[in-house]
């Protein structure tokens, strides 16, 4: 029996879809069976980020309205085995789906797959409630700025109210240089306010833009800092204990010192 995890944030543009695509891909790369669900009905784009847009034939709406079987609506990823996408309908609106219908889909999928990741829409309205309805756990994605953190805090309250108590944080787009100069909130400051467990920190990585536009999740570009961070998060999701590295500035001397202290 698998786990259903909703990936949400409250605020838009903080990296929910990017995180869903990358974590889904990363989990499949370490040999887990995964379904990623786009819950952003009417504004779908998980299929675009995954580069699967042209392969979407049926959507979750077709499953709900019994125009096709659930298995038939799942789109197979073109790069990794055991990764499936359930796309959202672009023609419908968020209130066309009821939370119970979403719950039913999640119940069925978690019988067969290890991980079911749900990409939640921004906001706290019907779309968010649908996305969270079938979830056992939640991953909050936030960037280190006050408005995103305020919204994340609100979302955590709503999730707890709904009875979801396993809530973990992914801190996205952290720039070590800005933190050091005092122009960005650091990891500890964010954790101090949100008071939930940290699943991982993804550094600011311009590679994300290119990978999104090409429709190839970042985790495929080995060696990029963002890809490595997502791989570590995926391993932690499978229960492996991997420490969260302290973010290092891109600085020759700092790296050199670090190298010496490691080889002592």
């Amino acid at each position: 029996m698998g786990k259903v995890i909703v990936i949400t944030s409250g605020k838009g543009g903080v990296g929910k879809t990017t995180s869903t695509a990358n974590l889904g891909t990363a989990l499949a790369m370490i040999e887990r069976t995964v379904v990623i669900i786009d819950a952003d009905v009417g504004l779908r784009n998980l299929d675009v980020v995954m580069g699967l847009e042209s392969r979407v034939v049926y959507t979750s709406m077709d499953v709900i309205e019994k125009r096709c079987d659930l298995d038939k609506a799942l789109v197979k990823d073109r790069r990794v085995e055991d990764l499936m996408l359930l796309a959202a309908s672009q023609r419908n609106r968020k209130d066309d789906i009821k939370p119970e219908q979403m719950q039913e889909i999640c119940e069925k999928l978690k019988q067969e797959y290890d991980f079911v990741l749900i990409d939640s829409p921004a906001g706290i309205e019907q779309g968010f409630h649908n996305a969270a309805a079938g979830a056992d756990e939640a991953i909050i994605v936030t960037t280190p700025d006050v408005s995103a953190i305020r919204d994340a805090d609100r979302i955590i309250g709503l999730l707890q109210h709904q009875g979801i108590n396993s809530i973990n944080l992914v801190l996205n787009r952290l720039s070590p240089t800005l933190v050091k100069n005092g122009n960005m909130m650091g990891k500890n400051e964010v954790l101090d306010i949100l008071n939930i467990d940290l699943l991982g920190v993804v550094p600011e990585d311009t590679g994300v833009i290119a990978s999104t536009n090409r429709g190839v999740p970042l985790v495929h570009s080995e060696g990029s800092p963002g890809a490595e961070a997502y791989m570590r998060i995926a391993r932690r999701m499978t229960g492996q204990r991997i420490p969260i590295p302290e973010m290092q500035e891109e600085n020759f001397f700092a790296n050199l010192l670090n190298w010496f202290s490691r080889n002592k």
């Binding site: 305020r150 919204d151 805090d153 609100r154 955590i156 309250g157 709503l158 306010i193 008071n195």
Partner: peptide, 22 residues
């Protein structure tokens, strides 16, 4: 958390935790 309210109209409130912005 943001958006949540705790009220006690009969006495005082003690909170074992934070009160976040909002």
């Amino acid at each position: 958390r943001s958006g949540q309210t705790t009220s006690c109209l009969s006495g005082s409130v003690v909170i074992y935790g934070d009160v976040n912005p909002g």
